[in-house]
Design a protein around this nucleic acid. Sequence first.
DNA 1: TCTGGGGTCCTAGGACCC
DNA 2: TCTGGGGTCCTAGGACCC
Length: 364
Amino acid sequence: MSCLLFMTRIIAHLDMDAFFAAVEERDRPKYKGQPIVVGSDPMEGKGRGVVSTANYKARKYGIRSATPISRAWQMSEEARKKGFPPAVFLLPNFLKYEKSSFEISKIVHRFSPLVEPASIDEMYFDLSSCVNYKKAGSICKKIKSEIKKEEKLTCSIGIGSNKLIAKIASDFKKPDGLTVVEKGKEEAFLENFPIRKIPGIGPKTEEILLRRQIKLVKDLKKLSKDELKKMLGKWGDDLYFKIRGIDDSPIVEKYEIKSMGEQETFSKDTLDSRFITGRMVNLSESVFERFKKSEFKNFKTITITVRFEGFETKNRSRTLTKLSPDLKTIQFEVLRLLAPFFDKRENPKRKFFRLIGIRIERFE
DNA sequence: TCTGGGGTCCTAGGACCC
DNA sequence: TCTGGGGTCCTAGGACCC
């Protein structure tokens, strides 16, 4: 039996600070020190879409990730009227961020054999071989300084006995932070956080819990496992352990793609069926191109999404019996799924379309 | 305020099969 | 005549994450 079983795990979570905005600020010296908002085109306050990342200067105006871009524009205008510099609005450049993300993961790999990319700006890595937290902390300081030196970017790192603690710890001091939660201190660390800090508790679950006067993690701990399970299903079971600082989920270096899709929000809601089907044909082509470049030979299920004005969203899917993934098949199925939305069957009130999308899954 | 685009995972009902 | 039990697949919807 491996001694790994008896070795305590030391896990770190690295989170880049205002990543997209920081990369842009680094690469465009003329914007240095300015409030920067990376997101969709604000179109003088008429744009659709949201903010991807706002740097810390822009956050002072109230602009955050997921703020509607039109609202962000307003906030920037209000600041300008008060004599502050207006925000610089930039479109995201994902290729550039991916490249930087890859360079950062290479740096982390110099110090840890086991790295899990969690998103473009986050990763988990294993530092168990450090044996103690002090050593793990000094390794992370080194990682931070190498990222600063080589990529000219700052990040925040959390260290704990599992992924959950590491993740929450990385968010504890931002930007440019380093937080170590030693073994045995997990429960005390979590207790006074608002429940929303627990990954997996989103707006809906938060609302359910707030209605029962549950605001902090320590309030949530008063519920029994059965009560949590009754309220939240299977996930309640997991949550029972998480809020006690217990999490044994492993670090996974690479996981397979399960689906690929694309969607498009129109700049104006529309009922023009020629336009809509035309866009849908384009989305199908573009998804098919990605599929062709992938390692997969087949997919089984096609799903289309239609979002109407008022944000009402519908999905329709079909699993293919014959596996023949050519563009014609996709487009035929997509249009077959889409067609009913143009008549009274699926759209009795003649609602305008806001968004359409397509996704393929169940690869082989 | 009026809500992107890329994903993952879970639930629940119904069909179908043995 | 008044209807099992278990398993799997398909479909639709929804919560959540970055």
